[in-house]
Write a protein that binds this DNA or RNA. Structure first.
Length: 423
RNA sequence: GGAGAGGUGGCCGAGUGGUCUAAGGCGCACGCCUGGAAAGCGUGUAUCCGUCACAAGCGGGUCAAGGGUUCGAAUCCCUUUCUCUCCGCCA
């Protein structure tokens, strides 16, 4: 959520900045300011009413104590009236507050000034690229063919057991997955992240806290019998560890990491995007999250991008970093860098990480604060990034390292796989 | 799934209708004391909303959450939720 203060005092600026997302917030902002004014006026009236009622109750108490209970009759009458009035005011307050909240959650985060305008992926800005995208070898096979050739991933079997988008990893394929998870977690630990194993099912409050609800309702698997959601990313349980809490300033930044399975319904996806491992309903990912001081969060964002770059270097994968444009930016994010690796057989870039600074947007929803040395409580900033998403890393590893002798495993992974090639 | 007991401040814990403006303790912060420290003593120490300058002060809400009874609720009633114990089932 945005800070209501900025909407009150700089509504025009909010509207202007949201235009970068191709959003016209004029109406929402207008209604919000109105609801805010009504809410405050009603609150004041209700408070005054309650203050008087409290005063009366005190006086009546005094009378009873000194045995003059019968003198309280008149006061009781006024009290009853106040109570009636309070009920009306409370109802009004509840209703205007509900409207206010509903409007508040409709507004996405304000894009950082560096976010370029644009409508789609095509308008994202290239920040830099590292490594040489290999030209397609003449007989290069896409990873789904390699998977079949070496019998390491079975898509049909997964489809039988569950459905499309639920692959079955087998033999060295399964072992390679496990190796990647262990590698990523070890690296995260070395970089100072605390390893967690969070729940894979979360409640509504958590899904709301990180901004999946209500914006992405329908993208998550939902278990109505228990009203729980399967996590689309470990970001949700991880960030929500700090929901409703007040950290000490010196505890910042908090750095945590988790491996988790991720579940996404991916309603509306189709075509080459969903071929093979490119887009799945269930996949594995290691996620890193930081809770940072507002003054340092952009440094932290850079640090996270550099950390993920390091992982990709160790995996010897060519990659590029893009800055998402307004139209591609996630609802809760102020600034996002995507990391893409080049899959040489498909000859396309695959997104393997998305690193975002949410500033105080998630914190405002989940009341994540820190106490400054001066004793003042303020909202912390939250950030997260994939480090990394496995299926596309696997796809690129397979495609880029294929050769006559099979699939070559990068040096960094060999201690984890226990073999240096698949073939 | 069945039966029972509970949820009070950062933590422990008292509190069964008005003096709760929540006792007491621990922890923490600051001060006194000390060569320095410990002990001791003193002071302070939740959060949200409103008013307002995002100050002080003042008003209101919050004793798991929501609703109700009452002039008045941490305390009584209802619903929900979570925790613990026992039984059942089970990796």
């Amino acid at each position: 959520m945005l800070d209501i203060q900025i909407i009150r005092e700089h509504g025009e600026e909010v509207i202007r900045r949201l235009k970068v997302r191709n959003m016209d917030a004029t109406e929402v902002v207008g209604r919000l300011r109105e609801a805010d004014a009504v809410r405050r006026k009603t609150q004041k009236e209700l408070d005054d009413n309650l203050a008087r009622a409290n005063e009366l109750a005190r006086q009546i108490g005094e009378l009873f104590k000194s045995g003059k209970g019968q003198q309280a009759a008149e006061m009781k009458q006024e009290s009853a009236l106040l109570k009636q009035r309070a009920k009306t005011l409370q109802d009004q307050l509840d209703s205007v507050t509900a409207e206010f909240r509903e409007l508040m959650v409709k507004l996405p985060n304000l894009p950082h000034p560096s976010v370029p305008p644009g409508n789609s992926e095509a308008d994202n800005e290239l920040v830099r690229a590292e490594g040489e995208p290999l030209p397609a070898a003449t007989n290069a096979l896409p990873h789904w063919d390699l998977a079949r050739k070496y019998d390491i991933i079975d898509f049909e079997l997964g489809a039988k057991v569950s459905g499309a988008g639920f692959p079955v990893y087998k033999g060295r394929g399964a072992r390679l997955q496990r190796a990647l998870i262990a590698f990523f977690l070890d690296e995260a630990t070395k970089a100072g992240y605390t390893e967690y194993q969070p729940p894979l099912l979360v409640n509504e409050a958590s899904a709301f806290g990180t901004g999946q609800l209500p914006d992405k309702d329908g993208q998550m698997y939902h278990l109505p019998a228990d009203n729980l959601y399967l996590i689309p990313t470990a970001e949700v349980p991880l960030t929500n560890l700090y929901r409703d809490s007040i950290l000490k300033e010196e505890e910042l930044p908090v750095k945590c990491a988790a491996y988790s399975v991720c579940f996404r319904r991916e309603a509306g996806s189709y075509g080459k995007d969903v071929r093979g491992l490119n887009r799945l309903h269930q996949f594995d990912k290691v996620e890193i999250v930081q809770v940072a001081h507002p003054g340092k969060s952009y440094e932290v964002l850079d640090e996270m991008v550099e950390y993920v770059s390091g992982l990709l270097r160790k995996l010897e994968l060519p990659f590029r970093i893009t800055r998402l444009c307004g139209g591609d930016l996630g609802f809760a994010s102020a600034l996002t860098f995507d990391m893409e690796v080049y899959a040489s057989a498909q000859q396309r870039w695959l997104e393997v990480s998305s690193i975002s600074n949410f500033e105080a947007y998630q914190s405002a929803r989940m009341k994540l604060r820190f106490r400054s040395s001066a004793g003042k409580n303020s909202l912390a900033h939250t950030l997260n990034g994939s480090a990394l998403a496995l299926p596309r890393i696997l796809a690129a590893l397979l495609e880029n390292n294929q050769g006559a002798g099979g699939i070559r495993i990068p040096e960094a992974l060999r201690p984890y796989t226990g073999f240096d090639s698949i073939g």
